[in-house]
Structure formats: structure tokens, C-alpha cells
């Protein structure tokens, strides 16, 4: 784990998922890591732009990486699976192909944008806190045991696959979220769809197909007796949380599954106040039972 990170919240945590941003800042303070803001960054060009205008995506990503480099930090910290894959993919291309880096930098220079020398790594919050000294540091700040809370991990796609661009853990048998859930004192719930897709990228263009995908994890986590689900991706969060009732209509059965951002779960275990974790910004509300198990209103344990 680094002491300082170039912090890249991405579109969703800056807009509709602001609770993810506030929770990330709070857990970072507990972990005593510095997040350096980059006010001029844009969307990373993920997904749709990457698909429709690949060269524009590459340049948008290069501009972000260049700004991260200028903060002096060695690692850009992302809290979104989609940003993670897309920024890593662009970074790999720029770092491994000098001719391509030169072409992109030449274009950036032509329009007075600072260039990129290839010196930044892109890493997700999940990776930083689930292994090595970051994990030890989290364990030392997880002062509130969430005992009795049954948590279904939902990884999302673009933090696992393709492994050749991500490669943090076995994409078919990941265990980083389980490790963190256990470190929070909670109980991880296993179910096959935890590595599958939430359908979000096509939820507007192909809602029926997307909901068909979304039903599966909600159904399996519910049947396995989970109290909540946790995800490292704000897109998965939005899909599982906001589209949950539409998925219930399709499945013909009710779902009442609160969805936590990873930073919210870690924050609850580290004693971050409920006002900062902002669960009221979720469409699927927490039940009183879950609030109790998350120990949201307990005074912080003194250690």
C-alpha cells in the first residue's frame, strides 16, 4: 500500500453515487493514506467511448494518466471496475508501445495538454486493502466487528476479466472480498453468480437482456441467506440497487437486498459515521435489522 495516491473517483462516484466518494475518503483517512484530487480529469472513456471511438478513449485515458503522474504519486487509485480495466488497458498500451506513446503525446502537445511518460500504475481500492500491508492496516482499523452480518460478495466483471490485463487474483475463484468480509467480523456467503455480470452496460439499450442477467445474483444471494451484498464497482451497485425492483418483477418474486459499496462495508467496520457512509442515498433501503448488524449507530469502540 502507498502513502499517497492520485485519486480518480470516475463519473459515477462524482455524480449519482456520491456516497461512494464520501465513504472512500473516510476509509482512506482511517487507513492514513492521502488521496490527491485531480480536478481536471474527465470520464476515462470507458465502455461506450472505448467501443465507438477507440482513439479518443486512448487519448482521454492518457490525459488522466498524465495528470496522475504530475501529482507525484506512483499509483492512480480507482474505485470502479470499469475505470480500472479501461485505464489499465490504455496504460498497458502506452507503456508497452513506445511508438504509440509518442504518437499520443504528440497529439496531446498539439492541443497544449501535458504529456505522459508512462510512469503510473492503476490499481483498485479492493486490491490495495485486501492483500499485503494494506490488509494488515485495514485489520488494525476494523474496530467494530460486524458479527452476525451475512454478506454476499459480488465482484463484477471488469475487476476479474480479462485476467491478462487485471491479474490480481484467479478470475474464477476470487477471494479478496471474502477475506475483507471476514476481516470485518462478518460472514461471507458463497454463491455461483458472484463472478457474473450485473447487466449494467446494456440496461438502457437492452433492458430485458440486462435484467435477465441481474436476476441471477440477486436470486442466488437471497436464497443463500445473505443480509446484504457488497460490490467494488459503482456500476454493479447501481444495477443491483436501483434496478432491483424491475428484476423482482421479471423474476416474479420480491427482492429486498441492500447493496453496499466496498468502501461502505469497510467504513462501517472501521467506525465511520453513518452520515458519511450515506446509506440513505440507496434506492433499496437498509432494514433496521441490517442497520443493527452494521452497528451504524454504536459509539465507536475505543482501542
Amino acid at each position: 500500500m502507498q502513502e499517497r495516491y492520485a485519486y480518480y473517483p470516475g463519473c459515477l462516484a462524482s455524480l449519482s453515487q456520491k456516497e461512494l466518494d464520501s465513504s472512500t475518503r473516510a476509509i482512506s483517512a482511517k487507513l492514513e493514506i492521502e488521496l490527491i484530487d485531480m480536478p481536471s480529469v474527465t470520464c476515462c472513456g470507458a465502455g461506450d467511448i472505448h467501443e465507438a471511438k477507440p482513439d479518443y478513449y486512448l487519448h482521454l485515458s492518457a490525459r488522466i494518466l498524465a495528470q496522475a503522474e504530475r501529482t507525484g504519486a506512483e499509483v492512480l487509485l480507482t474505485i470502479c471496475n470499469v475505470c480500472c480495466l479501461n485505464l489499465r488497458q490504455a496504460n498497458k498500451k502506452l507503456q508497452s508501445d513506445p511508438a504509440e506513446l509518442a504518437r499520443v503525446n504528440d497529439n496531446l502537445m498539439q492541443v497544449d495538454i501535458p504529456t505522459y511518460s508512462g510512469g503510473v500504475e492503476v490499481r483498485h481500492l479492493l486490491w490495495e486493502v485486501s492483500a499485503g500491508d494494506g490488509f494488515e492496516r485495514f485489520r488494525s482499523v476494523a474496530v467494530r466487528s460486524l458479527e452476525g452480518l451475512r454478506v454476499a460478495p459480488f465482484y463484477g466483471c471488469q475487476i476479474l476479466r480479462p485476467a491478462k490485463l487485471l491479474g490480481f487474483e484467479d478470475p474464477d475463484r476470487p477471494e479478496s472480498l471474502e477475506r475483507l468480509i471476514t476481516a470485518c467480523g462478518a460472514e461471507p456467503i458463497d454463491y455461483p453468480a458472484k463472478v457474473k455480470c450485473c447487466g449494467f452496460p446494456i440496461v438502457l439499450a437492452r433492458e430485458d437482456v440486462a435484467l435477465g442477467e441481474l436476476v441471477q445474483p440477486l436470486q442466488e444471494a437471497t436464497d443463500a441467506g445473505a443480509d446484504v451484498m457488497v460490490t467494488p464497482c459503482p456500476l454493479c451497485h447501481l444495477s443491483l440497487d436501483a434496478w432491483q425492483q424491475k428484476a423482482a418483477n421479471l423474476a416474479g418474486r420480491p427482492f429486498q437486498m441492500p447493496i453496499l459499496h466496498l468502501a461502505q462495508l469497510l467504513g462501517a467496520a472501521a467506525g465511520v459515521e453513518a452520515d458519511t457512509l450515506r446509506f440513505r442515498r440507496h434506492v433499496t433501503r437498509l432494514s433496521e435489522d441490517v442497520k443493527d448488524k452494521l452497528r451504524l449507530y454504536d459509539p465507536v469502540a475505543r482501542v
Binding site: G47, L85, C157, Q158, L160, R161, P162, K196, C197, G199, F200, P201, I202, A205, R206, V209, A210, E213
Partner: peptide
């Protein structure tokens, strides 16, 4: 546009 980018 049916592809959901699951990368499986």
C-alpha cells in the same frame, strides 16, 4: 449492442 462486456 447486446454484448454486456462481461469479458468471459
Amino acid at each position: 449492442w447486446d454484448c454486456t462486456r462481461c469479458y468471459f
